[in-house]
Design a protein around this nucleic acid. Structure first.
Lengths: 164, 164
DNA sequence: CGCTATTTGATTGTGCGCAATTGAGTTGTG
DNA sequence: CACAACTCAATTGCGCACAATCAAATAGCG
Protein backbone atom coordinates (compact mmCIF):
# COMPACT_ATOMS: atom_id res chain seq x y z
CA UNK A 1 0.00 0.00 0.00
CA UNK A 2 2.76 2.44 0.86
CA UNK A 3 5.71 3.62 -1.17
CA UNK A 4 7.08 0.28 -2.11
CA UNK A 5 8.20 1.52 -5.52
CA UNK A 6 10.53 4.49 -6.08
CA UNK A 7 7.89 6.80 -7.55
CA UNK A 8 8.02 10.30 -8.90
CA UNK A 9 7.53 13.25 -6.61
CA UNK A 10 3.97 13.65 -7.87
CA UNK A 11 2.95 10.15 -6.89
CA UNK A 12 4.50 10.63 -3.49
CA UNK A 13 2.64 13.91 -3.01
CA UNK A 14 -0.58 12.13 -3.87
CA UNK A 15 0.30 9.58 -1.25
CA UNK A 16 0.72 12.33 1.33
CA UNK A 17 -2.70 13.72 0.54
CA UNK A 18 -4.23 10.28 0.78
CA UNK A 19 -2.59 9.74 4.15
CA UNK A 20 -3.70 13.16 5.32
CA UNK A 21 -7.24 12.33 4.33
CA UNK A 22 -7.16 9.16 6.38
CA UNK A 23 -5.61 10.73 9.43
CA UNK A 24 -7.48 13.96 9.78
CA UNK A 25 -10.66 12.10 8.99
CA UNK A 26 -9.84 9.63 11.76
CA UNK A 27 -9.45 12.27 14.39
CA UNK A 28 -12.56 14.06 13.22
CA UNK A 29 -14.58 10.85 13.17
CA UNK A 30 -13.31 9.66 16.55
CA UNK A 31 -14.25 12.94 18.15
CA UNK A 32 -17.76 12.78 16.73
CA UNK A 33 -18.19 9.11 17.57
CA UNK A 34 -17.17 9.83 21.16
CA UNK A 35 -19.50 12.77 21.24
CA UNK A 36 -22.26 10.54 19.93
CA UNK A 37 -21.84 8.02 22.72
CA UNK A 38 -21.90 10.75 25.33
CA UNK A 39 -24.98 12.20 23.68
CA UNK A 40 -26.84 8.95 24.20
CA UNK A 41 -25.61 8.49 27.76
CA UNK A 42 -26.10 12.11 28.76
CA UNK A 43 -29.54 12.26 27.22
CA UNK A 44 -31.17 10.90 30.35
CA UNK A 45 -29.50 13.64 32.38
CA UNK A 46 -30.66 16.32 29.97
CA UNK A 47 -27.09 17.43 29.30
CA UNK A 48 -25.10 17.91 26.13
CA UNK A 49 -21.45 16.93 26.00
CA UNK A 50 -20.02 20.44 26.51
CA UNK A 51 -22.56 21.08 29.24
CA UNK A 52 -21.36 17.90 30.93
CA UNK A 53 -17.80 19.20 30.74
CA UNK A 54 -18.88 22.38 32.50
CA UNK A 55 -20.72 20.46 35.21
CA UNK A 56 -17.69 18.23 35.77
CA UNK A 57 -15.59 21.30 36.50
CA UNK A 58 -18.23 22.72 38.81
CA UNK A 59 -18.65 19.43 40.66
CA UNK A 60 -14.92 19.23 41.18
CA UNK A 61 -14.16 22.85 42.03
CA UNK A 62 -17.44 24.37 43.18
CA UNK A 63 -18.17 28.02 42.44
CA UNK A 64 -16.05 29.17 39.52
CA UNK A 65 -15.91 32.42 37.56
CA UNK A 66 -16.66 32.23 33.84
CA UNK A 67 -13.10 33.21 33.11
CA UNK A 68 -11.74 30.20 35.00
CA UNK A 69 -14.23 27.88 33.30
CA UNK A 70 -12.96 29.11 29.98
CA UNK A 71 -9.38 28.37 30.97
CA UNK A 72 -10.22 24.87 32.18
CA UNK A 73 -12.09 24.01 28.98
CA UNK A 74 -10.32 26.30 26.51
CA UNK A 75 -13.61 27.88 25.57
CA UNK A 76 -14.36 31.59 25.19
CA UNK A 77 -17.37 33.58 26.28
CA UNK A 78 -18.92 33.28 22.86
CA UNK A 79 -19.41 29.60 23.58
CA UNK A 80 -19.83 29.71 27.35
CA UNK A 81 -22.30 32.56 27.73
CA UNK A 82 -25.23 30.98 25.90
CA UNK A 83 -24.31 27.53 27.23
CA UNK A 84 -24.38 28.77 30.83
CA UNK A 85 -27.67 30.53 30.21
CA UNK A 86 -29.16 27.24 29.09
CA UNK A 87 -27.79 25.51 32.19
CA UNK A 88 -29.30 28.28 34.31
CA UNK A 89 -32.62 27.97 32.49
CA UNK A 90 -32.53 24.24 33.29
CA UNK A 91 -32.06 25.12 36.97
CA UNK A 92 -28.65 23.47 37.25
CA UNK A 93 -26.47 26.53 37.87
CA UNK A 94 -26.76 30.09 39.10
CA UNK A 95 -24.82 33.01 37.64
CA UNK A 96 -24.11 36.02 39.83
CA UNK A 97 -21.90 39.02 39.31
CA UNK A 98 -19.09 39.14 41.80
CA UNK A 99 -19.48 41.89 44.38
CA UNK A 100 -15.75 42.44 44.57
CA UNK A 101 -15.27 42.76 40.80
CA UNK A 102 -18.38 43.69 38.91
CA UNK A 103 -16.84 42.46 35.64
CA UNK A 104 -16.65 38.89 36.86
CA UNK A 105 -19.55 36.42 36.88
CA UNK A 106 -19.49 33.58 39.35
CA UNK A 107 -21.07 30.27 38.34
CA UNK A 108 -22.10 27.77 40.96
CA UNK A 109 -24.19 24.61 40.84
CA UNK A 110 -27.65 24.82 42.38
CA UNK A 111 -28.83 22.14 44.74
CA UNK A 112 -30.43 20.44 41.76
CA UNK A 113 -27.20 20.73 39.81
CA UNK A 114 -25.20 19.27 42.66
CA UNK A 115 -27.72 16.44 42.99
CA UNK A 116 -27.26 15.56 39.33
CA UNK A 117 -23.74 14.46 40.15
CA UNK A 118 -25.04 11.32 41.80
CA UNK A 119 -26.70 10.24 38.58
CA UNK A 120 -23.57 11.11 36.60
CA UNK A 121 -21.38 8.74 38.57
CA UNK A 122 -22.28 5.76 36.40
CA UNK A 123 -21.36 7.53 33.17
CA UNK A 124 -17.59 7.09 33.02
CA UNK A 125 -17.73 3.34 33.26
CA UNK A 126 -20.54 3.08 30.71
CA UNK A 127 -18.58 5.14 28.21
CA UNK A 128 -15.38 3.28 28.90
CA UNK A 129 -17.04 -0.05 28.31
CA UNK A 130 -18.35 1.32 25.01
CA UNK A 131 -14.82 2.07 23.84
CA UNK A 132 -13.69 -1.50 24.36
CA UNK A 133 -10.41 -0.09 25.65
CA UNK A 134 -8.75 -1.07 28.88
CA UNK A 135 -8.09 1.59 31.48
CA UNK A 136 -4.44 1.26 30.55
CA UNK A 137 -5.09 1.98 26.89
CA UNK A 138 -7.36 4.88 27.71
CA UNK A 139 -4.73 6.48 29.93
CA UNK A 140 -2.17 6.00 27.18
CA UNK A 141 -4.42 7.60 24.58
CA UNK A 142 -5.12 10.40 27.03
CA UNK A 143 -1.38 11.06 27.35
CA UNK A 144 -0.79 11.08 23.60
CA UNK A 145 -3.69 13.40 22.94
CA UNK A 146 -2.49 15.84 25.58
CA UNK A 147 0.96 15.81 24.04
CA UNK A 148 -0.58 16.39 20.62
CA UNK A 149 -2.72 19.27 21.84
CA UNK A 150 0.19 20.94 23.58
CA UNK A 151 2.34 20.66 20.46
CA UNK A 152 -0.41 22.00 18.23
CA UNK A 153 -1.16 24.89 20.56
CA UNK A 154 2.44 25.98 20.97
CA UNK A 155 3.51 25.64 17.36
CA UNK A 156 3.65 29.04 15.72
CA UNK A 157 3.15 27.32 12.35
CA UNK A 158 6.21 28.58 10.53
CA UNK A 159 5.63 29.25 6.87
CA UNK A 160 8.20 26.77 5.58
CA UNK A 161 8.34 23.53 7.54
CA UNK A 162 11.12 22.02 5.46
CA UNK A 163 10.34 18.61 6.84
CA UNK A 164 12.59 16.16 5.05
CA UNK B 1 -15.68 16.77 49.81
CA UNK B 2 -13.41 13.99 48.62
CA UNK B 3 -12.65 12.07 51.78
CA UNK B 4 -9.02 11.24 52.27
CA UNK B 5 -10.11 7.91 53.68
CA UNK B 6 -8.75 4.95 51.71
CA UNK B 7 -11.41 4.53 49.04
CA UNK B 8 -14.93 4.31 50.15
CA UNK B 9 -17.06 3.71 47.11
CA UNK B 10 -17.84 7.43 47.05
CA UNK B 11 -14.21 8.47 46.84
CA UNK B 12 -13.61 6.01 44.05
CA UNK B 13 -16.63 7.30 42.15
CA UNK B 14 -15.27 10.81 42.48
CA UNK B 15 -12.02 9.57 41.06
CA UNK B 16 -13.84 8.13 38.04
CA UNK B 17 -15.52 11.45 37.40
CA UNK B 18 -12.21 13.26 37.67
CA UNK B 19 -10.63 10.85 35.21
CA UNK B 20 -13.59 11.16 32.88
CA UNK B 21 -13.22 14.91 32.95
CA UNK B 22 -9.60 14.66 31.96
CA UNK B 23 -10.12 12.14 29.20
CA UNK B 24 -13.17 13.44 27.46
CA UNK B 25 -11.73 16.91 27.72
CA UNK B 26 -8.51 15.65 26.14
CA UNK B 27 -10.22 14.23 23.12
CA UNK B 28 -12.40 17.29 22.77
CA UNK B 29 -9.43 19.61 23.08
CA UNK B 30 -7.24 17.62 20.72
CA UNK B 31 -9.91 17.66 18.07
CA UNK B 32 -10.32 21.42 18.36
CA UNK B 33 -6.58 22.05 18.47
CA UNK B 34 -6.16 20.00 15.31
CA UNK B 35 -9.02 21.86 13.74
CA UNK B 36 -7.37 25.12 14.72
CA UNK B 37 -4.10 24.24 13.01
CA UNK B 38 -5.92 23.23 9.85
CA UNK B 39 -7.91 26.45 10.07
CA UNK B 40 -4.71 28.48 9.91
CA UNK B 41 -3.15 26.38 7.15
CA UNK B 42 -6.33 26.15 5.09
CA UNK B 43 -7.08 29.82 5.44
CA UNK B 44 -4.87 30.68 2.48
CA UNK B 45 -6.82 28.18 0.37
CA UNK B 46 -10.14 29.62 1.50
CA UNK B 47 -11.27 26.26 2.85
CA UNK B 48 -12.59 25.16 6.22
CA UNK B 49 -11.57 21.85 7.70
CA UNK B 50 -14.70 19.90 6.68
CA UNK B 51 -14.59 21.49 3.24
CA UNK B 52 -11.01 20.29 2.93
CA UNK B 53 -12.16 16.78 3.81
CA UNK B 54 -14.70 16.92 1.00
CA UNK B 55 -12.13 18.20 -1.49
CA UNK B 56 -9.72 15.43 -0.48
CA UNK B 57 -12.35 12.84 -1.38
CA UNK B 58 -13.10 14.56 -4.68
CA UNK B 59 -9.42 14.86 -5.59
CA UNK B 60 -8.95 11.19 -4.91
CA UNK B 61 -12.13 9.78 -6.46
CA UNK B 62 -13.36 12.43 -8.89
CA UNK B 63 -17.08 12.87 -9.43
CA UNK B 64 -18.98 11.49 -6.45
CA UNK B 65 -22.66 11.50 -5.50
CA UNK B 66 -23.60 13.24 -2.25
CA UNK B 67 -24.62 9.91 -0.80
CA UNK B 68 -21.12 8.49 -1.31
CA UNK B 69 -19.52 11.61 0.14
CA UNK B 70 -21.62 11.16 3.23
CA UNK B 71 -20.51 7.56 3.58
CA UNK B 72 -16.84 8.46 3.19
CA UNK B 73 -17.04 11.22 5.78
CA UNK B 74 -19.88 9.91 7.94
CA UNK B 75 -21.82 13.10 7.38
CA UNK B 76 -25.47 13.45 6.45
CA UNK B 77 -27.18 15.78 4.02
CA UNK B 78 -27.97 18.24 6.78
CA UNK B 79 -24.27 18.96 7.00
CA UNK B 80 -23.25 18.34 3.41
CA UNK B 81 -25.95 20.24 1.53
CA UNK B 82 -25.10 23.74 2.78
CA UNK B 83 -21.37 22.92 2.78
CA UNK B 84 -21.50 21.86 -0.87
CA UNK B 85 -23.49 24.96 -1.77
CA UNK B 86 -20.72 27.08 -0.28
CA UNK B 87 -18.09 25.15 -2.23
CA UNK B 88 -20.14 25.68 -5.38
CA UNK B 89 -20.53 29.37 -4.62
CA UNK B 90 -16.74 29.51 -4.28
CA UNK B 91 -16.46 27.97 -7.73
CA UNK B 92 -14.67 24.84 -6.53
CA UNK B 93 -17.33 22.22 -7.29
CA UNK B 94 -20.37 21.72 -9.48
CA UNK B 95 -23.51 19.92 -8.38
CA UNK B 96 -25.72 18.26 -10.99
CA UNK B 97 -28.64 15.92 -10.66
CA UNK B 98 -27.90 12.56 -12.11
CA UNK B 99 -29.77 11.87 -15.35
CA UNK B 100 -30.10 8.18 -14.56
CA UNK B 101 -31.51 8.73 -11.10
CA UNK B 102 -33.06 12.12 -10.54
CA UNK B 103 -32.84 11.70 -6.77
CA UNK B 104 -29.07 11.63 -6.82
CA UNK B 105 -26.81 14.70 -7.02
CA UNK B 106 -23.35 14.29 -8.50
CA UNK B 107 -20.57 16.48 -7.14
CA UNK B 108 -17.42 17.04 -9.18
CA UNK B 109 -14.52 19.47 -8.81
CA UNK B 110 -14.39 22.32 -11.30
CA UNK B 111 -11.16 23.15 -13.07
CA UNK B 112 -10.49 25.67 -10.33
CA UNK B 113 -11.24 23.10 -7.67
CA UNK B 114 -8.92 20.59 -9.28
CA UNK B 115 -6.21 23.23 -9.55
CA UNK B 116 -6.46 23.90 -5.84
CA UNK B 117 -5.02 20.46 -5.23
CA UNK B 118 -1.55 21.63 -6.27
CA UNK B 119 -1.56 24.23 -3.51
CA UNK B 120 -2.88 21.68 -1.01
CA UNK B 121 0.04 19.33 -1.52
CA UNK B 122 2.21 21.13 1.03
CA UNK B 123 -0.43 20.94 3.76
CA UNK B 124 0.08 17.43 5.14
CA UNK B 125 3.72 17.97 5.91
CA UNK B 126 3.10 21.37 7.46
CA UNK B 127 0.45 19.96 9.78
CA UNK B 128 2.54 16.93 10.60
CA UNK B 129 5.46 19.08 11.60
CA UNK B 130 3.11 21.08 13.82
CA UNK B 131 2.17 17.96 15.73
CA UNK B 132 5.76 17.17 16.59
CA UNK B 133 4.92 13.52 15.98
CA UNK B 134 6.89 11.16 13.79
CA UNK B 135 5.17 9.48 10.88
CA UNK B 136 5.34 6.30 12.90
CA UNK B 137 3.52 7.83 15.86
CA UNK B 138 0.92 9.40 13.62
CA UNK B 139 0.15 6.11 11.95
CA UNK B 140 -0.12 4.49 15.36
CA UNK B 141 -2.51 7.15 16.62
CA UNK B 142 -4.47 6.78 13.40
CA UNK B 143 -4.86 3.05 14.03
CA UNK B 144 -5.97 3.53 17.61
CA UNK B 145 -8.51 6.18 16.72
CA UNK B 146 -10.01 4.02 14.02
CA UNK B 147 -10.32 1.16 16.46
CA UNK B 148 -11.94 3.51 18.96
CA UNK B 149 -14.41 4.85 16.41
CA UNK B 150 -15.37 1.38 15.25
CA UNK B 151 -15.96 0.25 18.81
CA UNK B 152 -18.00 3.32 19.66
CA UNK B 153 -20.10 3.03 16.52
CA UNK B 154 -20.89 -0.64 16.94
CA UNK B 155 -21.63 -0.59 20.65
CA UNK B 156 -25.34 -0.70 21.25
CA UNK B 157 -24.77 0.91 24.64
CA UNK B 158 -26.44 -1.65 26.83
CA UNK B 159 -28.25 -0.20 29.80
CA UNK B 160 -26.20 -1.98 32.44
CA UNK B 161 -22.52 -2.19 31.69
CA UNK B 162 -21.68 -4.19 34.76
CA UNK B 163 -18.03 -3.34 34.39
CA UNK B 164 -16.07 -4.78 37.32
C1' DC C 1 -9.20 64.05 39.81
C1' DG C 2 -9.30 62.95 34.58
C1' DC C 3 -7.53 60.05 31.02
C1' DT C 4 -6.04 55.79 29.03
C1' DA C 5 -5.30 50.83 28.84
C1' DT C 6 -6.73 46.45 30.31
C1' DT C 7 -9.87 43.00 31.78
C1' DT C 8 -14.31 40.59 31.57
C1' DG C 9 -18.43 39.13 29.71
C1' DA C 10 -22.03 39.68 26.22
C1' DT C 11 -23.43 39.99 21.46
C1' DT C 12 -23.36 39.09 16.47
C1' DG C 13 -22.35 36.43 12.45
C1' DT C 14 -20.65 32.28 10.02
C1' DG C 15 -20.00 27.47 9.74
C1' DC C 16 -20.36 22.62 11.36
C1' DG C 17 -23.09 18.34 13.56
C1' DC C 18 -27.15 16.10 14.03
C1' DA C 19 -32.16 14.91 14.61
C1' DA C 20 -36.50 15.29 12.44
C1' DT C 21 -39.35 16.40 8.67
C1' DT C 22 -40.55 17.14 3.81
C1' DG C 23 -40.87 16.05 -0.97
C1' DA C 24 -39.57 14.35 -5.27
C1' DG C 25 -38.11 10.18 -7.56
C1' DT C 26 -37.80 5.16 -7.80
C1' DT C 27 -39.01 0.37 -7.03
C1' DG C 28 -42.01 -3.44 -6.01
C1' DT C 29 -46.60 -5.55 -6.02
C1' DG C 30 -51.05 -6.69 -7.58
C1' DC D 1 -52.19 1.11 -14.47
C1' DA D 2 -52.65 2.19 -9.24
C1' DC D 3 -50.69 2.15 -4.86
C1' DA D 4 -47.47 1.40 -1.09
C1' DA D 5 -42.68 1.25 0.45
C1' DC D 6 -38.30 2.89 -0.05
C1' DT D 7 -34.33 6.15 -1.35
C1' DC D 8 -32.04 10.43 -1.65
C1' DA D 9 -31.42 15.19 -1.01
C1' DA D 10 -33.02 19.42 0.95
C1' DT D 11 -34.81 21.98 4.73
C1' DT D 12 -35.59 23.36 9.58
C1' DG D 13 -34.27 23.87 14.24
C1' DC D 14 -31.07 23.66 18.02
C1' DG D 15 -26.53 23.62 20.04
C1' DC D 16 -21.50 24.25 19.83
C1' DA D 17 -16.89 26.68 18.06
C1' DC D 18 -14.78 30.68 17.04
C1' DA D 19 -13.70 35.42 15.24
C1' DA D 20 -14.85 40.13 15.71
C1' DT D 21 -16.95 43.75 18.03
C1' DC D 22 -18.91 46.16 21.95
C1' DA D 23 -19.81 47.90 26.68
C1' DA D 24 -18.96 48.11 31.42
C1' DA D 25 -15.80 47.88 35.23
C1' DT D 26 -11.27 48.19 36.96
C1' DA D 27 -6.44 49.54 37.34
C1' DG D 28 -2.61 52.52 36.34
C1' DC D 29 -0.63 56.96 35.60
C1' DG D 30 -0.14 61.91 35.08
Amino acid sequence: MTTEAPQGAAAQDAEWLRLDRQICFSLHAASRAFNGVYRVVLNELGLTYPQYLVMLVLWEHGETPVKKLGEHLRLDSGTLSPLLKRLEAAGLVRRERSTRDERSVEVRPTEQGAALRARALRIPRRVMSATGFTLEEIRDLHTRLDRLTTALDTTALEETPGCE
